[in-house]
Write a protein that binds this DNA or RNA. Sequence first.
DNA 1: TGTATTTATTGAACTTGTTCAATCTTTTTG
DNA 2: CAAAAAGATTGAACAAGTTCAATAAATACA
Lengths: 193, 193
Amino acid sequence: MKELLHQHISNHVTIPEKERDRFCNLFKHQLVKRKRFLLQAGETCKFEGFVIKGLFRVYHVDQNGFENILYFAIENWWITDIDSFTNTIPSQLYIEALEDSEVLLISKKDKEFAYINLPQIEKLFRIMTQKTHVALQRRMIDNLSKTADQRYLDFIKKYPQLQQRLTNLQIAAYLGISHEFLSKIRKKIVTGS
Amino acid sequence: MKELLHQHISNHVTIPEKERDRFCNLFKHQLVKRKRFLLQAGETCKFEGFVIKGLFRVYHVDQNGFENILYFAIENWWITDIDSFTNTIPSQLYIEALEDSEVLLISKKDKEFAYINLPQIEKLFRIMTQKTHVALQRRMIDNLSKTADQRYLDFIKKYPQLQQRLTNLQIAAYLGISHEFLSKIRKKIVTGS
DNA sequence: TGTATTTATTGAACTTGTTCAATCTTTTTG
DNA sequence: CAAAAAGATTGAACAAGTTCAATAAATACA
């Protein structure tokens, strides 16, 4: 059940088996049914999760009730609201399963224990946070400099497998456009302009 | 000269003075005149910098030659292209001094040395990367969910001191709008609608 | 200090993307 | 399987933001 996490850790840091296992034992396995929430806005995020099956979306609801998706998480991805989790403040985000899913969850206390007692874990999360930061920086650049058409084409090229598991509503909410406009972009692409 | 860095480190981690000093000694002091570049697109970013005086902008130039500012860095902020630096790939970014500035620079090799030999440094950068990631995540949410008017009002409220050191062109490039449109937003605010 | 350069403002025409409403298709669920 | 719910498409009217061009104001620097 924790093979994916074992593998993931070993892929990113050199770590004694014993230390890795002590860390993995801090996680609790949890099933999350489709449409169920791991986190809702207003709650303080008390976990960091590692997805071993399924698909989640992490999104924000603005004043007008419009949903903006920050990211999707599939197998081998981490999910949390890092802002709420690290600063112990109410979250602005929802984390919802889009398919029947499974996650491994670690509490804040256990993660802090790991930071103190398992030195390679500090490195692991330094590296993972760097990676997610790089991904977000790239997305920020794209959002600032590309049109919706280009962003959509980039998205389906970059995540072809993910696209098939998502509705166009969800893709639109990720791209930051209305789903009607996405529909028009898709038509334009099919008809060749 | 390295007092700011000393202070900054002690503010974020508990570290023996000796370890902190060994780390600080890895930095080289550098003056950067206004309009000079620390990094230009195409180069691989070979440093991480800590600003001790002045002001920098970190920006991207898109296909149409339009400049998008990712962030500004003043005293006590770190500057680098984390993507280029960590993955050793050509940067898409420019880092330019907007005022006569001073930075402390550390090379990739010395930073890796620190990660291996100075355990609290791993923690320091885990925390700093988390912080910058949180800031970027907040900005991403704002960009997805707020109008240009709101983003401008938020910006001058959040960074009043920074606003005075920037031109409206630079603020517009940060907000992701044309400077003409920013001018119209400003007029609307002054005339009270 | 005066000239050149950069920055800021404004208006008009235009483009990109939104909103609303109607219709159709697909998926979910009792 | 049937009904209900969710998702996708389309068009028309609208709003947000861009582009271009002209002019004025502020700043840099020889």
